[in-house]
């Protein structure tokens, strides 16, 4: 984001036209998202290996999660993706108010999601389900259920961290939107941030069934 970006069109000198610049920006964002896909992919791979080694333990451990809270959070994240999409739409139409309302909505739903996550983490802590010396699963210390909970905290923790980073960026974007930095023809930050936020939503779309639902048919213990 050099000073050149502040010309009226937003075109910087090393691109032929705004279309080429926009295309390069989108591709760059996707290149970043590919690294994110593979980063989370490693965790999903670890999950697949350990779950196939201890399928029953994973189902037993999973039934200690609250399907209702996880389901509510899934809907909450889908809502945040909708408000994000509406913010990008408003940017394309040149509605400053629309951009800010969309971002505030995304922030609102993101905060609800993280609040529910705090309640869930607290519950796991209270029930000795955090891996380590205090881990006790249905009366037994240790056991392969620890692997499930290690993956649960690693995967949902890294996911929540992405949301926290996203919400910090949203604050900055609201300031920029308020200042009028985004024009209908030039708002790469809003569009590329939208891609990031939707990607984080997709990660949760896979985390929810794999972490919360694999033990659901055997009845919940919580």
């Amino acid at each position: 984001m050099s000073d050149h970006a502040h010309s009226t069109t937003g075109l910087v000198h090393h691109f032929d036209d705004i279309e080429q610049q926009h295309e390069a920006g989108t591709l760059g964002m996707w290149a970043f998202l590919i690294t994110e896909v593979l980063f989370f992919g490693g965790l999903f791979g670890a999950y697949a290996v350990y779950r196939s080694a201890y399928p029953e333990a994973f189902m037993r451990a999973s039934s200690h999660l609250d399907v209702d809270l996880g389901g509510v959070n899934t809907i909450v994240l889908i809502c945040s993706s909708l408000t994000m999409a509406l913010s990008v739409y408003a940017a394309q139409k040149g509605s400053k108010r629309g951009i800010i309302m969309g971002l505030l909505g995304t922030m609102f739903f993101g905060a609800i999601f993280l609040g529910v996550k705090v309640i869930e983490y607290k519950d796991k802590w209270d029930h000795h389900l955090v891996p380590g010396d205090n881990f006790i699963f249905e009366g037994n210390p240790g056991g392969p259920e620890q692997l499930y909970f290690a993956l649960y905290f690693a995967m949902t923790g890294v996911h929540a961290f992405h949301m926290i980073v996203g919400m910090v960026i949203i604050c900055w974007m609201i300031k920029k939107a308020h200042r009028g930095d985004f024009t209908p023809g030039h708002h790469p930050l809003v569009e590329n941030f939208g891609l990031y936020w939707h990607f984080v939503d997709i990660v949760w779309i896979f985390l929810f069934p794999l972490l919360y639902l694999i033990g659901a048919h055997s009845g919940s213990h919580t």
């Binding site: 295309e23 996707w30 590919i34 896909v37 593979l38 490693g42 791979g45 697949a48 290996v49």
Partner: peptide, 25 residues
Amino acid sequence: LTQLFAFAGFFWLALLLVFTLQDYW
């Protein structure tokens, strides 16, 4: 080109998972 990028990311993820699991399984 953007569609190819998006596809490539998930294609490589599929390779990662398939080659890992064909070993462990």
